[in-house]
Amino acid sequence: MKTCLIVDDSSVIRKVARRIIEDIGYEVDEAEDGREAFEKCTQSMPDAILVDWNMPVMTGLEFVKELRSYIGGESPKILFCTTENDVGHIAMALKAGANEYMMKPFDREIMESKFRDLDQK
C-alpha cells in the first residue's frame, strides 16, 4: 500500500484529511510540525506528503526545502494544504519543490482531484 504523511498542527484538519486520503487508498501517518515530519521522513520516506504552511517549530515551506535537499527526499509527491491563498505563496511553494497546492477550505472532491493529478507528476 502507498503511504502518505499528513503534516498539520490542527488535529481537526488531520482527521478530516486522513479520512479522505485513506479512502483514496493510502496508509496514513501524521506529524504536527515540519520538524517531526522531517524526522519521520528520514526513518521511512512516504510516497506522498500533505503539508500545511503555518506550523510551530518548523513551517511547511522550511520542511519542503529541507526535505528536497536531503538524499532520497526528492521522491515523495508533496501537496501543500493551506489557508495561504495568494499567487506569491503558491509560486514560492512550487519553486521550493512542492508538486501541487491546495487552498483551504477544500472538500473531498478537490482533494481527490489533486491526488489524481499527483499520480501523473
Binding site: N85, D86, V87, I90, A91, A93, L94, A98, E100, Y101, M102, M103, F106, D107, E109, I110, S113, K114, D117
Partner: peptide
C-alpha cells in the same frame, strides 16, 4: 470561486493563467 478553480486546475496552471481578484 476558489472552489471552482481548484476542481481540475493544477496550481501551476492557476497561477499562469489566472489573476486573483479578492477571494
Amino acid at each position: 470561486t476558489q472552489f471552482e478553480v481548484q476542481r481540475g486546475l493544477s496550481a501551476q496552471r492557476l497561477i499562469t493563467h489566472f489573476d486573483q481578484e479578492g477571494g
